[in-house]
Measured scan of single mutants.
Amino acid sequence: RFRLSPAARNILEKHSLDASQGTATGPRGIFTKEDALKLVQLKQTGK
């Protein structure tokens, strides 16, 4: 289970993504908004 920032949680839910597909870069291993946006971008480019 990942620790998600509220913004990251919202983005992941909106795009039906799972945090385990990305890398948490925030302090103390928190999955940040920026991490979520990177994951969305990867999904949109098909990689």
Rank of each mutant, 00 (worst) to 15 (best):
L12C: 13
K47M: 15
Q21R: 05
Q44P: 04
L12H: 04
T23L: 09
T25S: 09
L12Y: 00
H15S: 04
I11P: 06
R1D: 04
Q44K: 15
P6V: 10
Q21P: 05
A7N: 05
L4N: 14
Q41G: 10
P27V: 04
I11C: 04
G46P: 05
E13G: 06
K14W: 05
L17N: 01
S20T: 12
A19S: 09
L42N: 08
I30R: 06
K14Y: 08
R3L: 06
Q21Y: 04
S20I: 02
P6R: 14
K33I: 14
G26H: 05
I30W: 10
R3A: 04
R3T: 14
S20A: 13
K47T: 01
N10Y: 10
R9G: 11
T25K: 06
A36I: 00
K33S: 08
D35R: 01
R28H: 10
Q41I: 02
L12T: 11
Q41T: 12
L12E: 13
G46C: 14
P6K: 14
G26T: 03
I11S: 05
T23F: 07
G22M: 07
R1E: 10
A24P: 10
Q41V: 08
V40M: 05
T25V: 05
N10T: 14
G26P: 03
G22N: 02
T25Q: 04
K43L: 03
T25G: 05
K38F: 01
S5A: 09
R28V: 05
L4W: 02
T25F: 01
A19G: 12
R1S: 15
A19C: 11
D18V: 02
K43C: 09
S20E: 14
K14P: 13
L12W: 01
K33D: 09
A19H: 08
T32E: 05
R9H: 09
F31N: 13
T23H: 08
L12R: 06
K33Q: 14
Q44V: 12
K14Q: 14
V40F: 03
A8M: 08
F31R: 05
R9T: 10
L12I: 12
D18W: 00
E34W: 07
N10E: 15
D35W: 01
G22S: 02
P27F: 02
I30D: 12
R3M: 12
R28W: 09
T32L: 03
D35I: 00
P6C: 14
G29M: 05
I11Q: 05
K14E: 15
P6L: 10
A8R: 06
E34A: 11
L17P: 13
L39G: 10
G46V: 10
E13F: 02
I30L: 15
K38T: 02
F2G: 03
N10R: 14
A8L: 00
A19I: 08
Q21E: 14
K43M: 10
T45V: 11
A24C: 05
A19Y: 10
T23M: 10
H15T: 07
K33A: 12
F2D: 09
R1V: 02
R3I: 15
T45Y: 08
F31D: 05
R9N: 12
P6G: 02
G46H: 15
L42F: 03
G29Y: 00
R28Q: 08
G22C: 06
R28I: 00
K33L: 06
L39N: 14
L4K: 12
A24V: 05
